[in-house]
């Protein structure tokens, strides 16, 4: 089920700085909330995010509970060649979710 949303321009010129946005459906449970039974709801967050461009990591981020639910990040990279951008989100349990997008560079 698609639970990620990435925006990458479909085309770009070589050397152009492109804007990228990435979002994933995730509650980012802080570990600081109490359930109605008075028990703390266990922490469960996306801890790490990374973007690879043709296999090379071009951006990454480390998240803490203060990141919003359904975490969103916008960043940029230089378009170098036609290829694939892959996005990886890793949660507290080590579970990885991925998304990808193609870019044609002229």
């Amino acid at each position: 089920m698609s639970r990620t949303l990435v925006s990458v321009p479909k085309t770009a010129r070589a050397g152009e700085v492109i804007d990228i946005r990435a979002m994933i459906a995730h509650p980012m449970e802080t570990g600081y909330r109490m359930g109605p039974n008075g028990q703390a709801i266990p922490r469960k967050i996306i801890r790490h995010f990374a973007c690879d461009y043709d296999g090379e990591e071009v951006f990454s981020a480390e998240f803490h509970p203060a990141m919003s639910a359904n975490p969103f990040v916008a960043f940029s990279t230089v378009a170098t060649k036609t290829g694939t951008l892959t996005f990886r989100w890793t949660d507290d349990d080590g579970k990885v979710e991925t998304a990808s997008a193609e870019i044609a560079v002229s």
Binding site: M1, S2, L5, S7, R21, M23, A25
Partner: peptide, 17 residues
């Protein structure tokens, strides 16, 4: 902006359902 609107995550999920 659809790329930043978190509601679009559910629209996408609905699309796969």
């Amino acid at each position: 902006d659809d790329g930043s609107n978190p509601g679009m995550l559910w629209v996408l999920q609905g699309g796969s359902l």
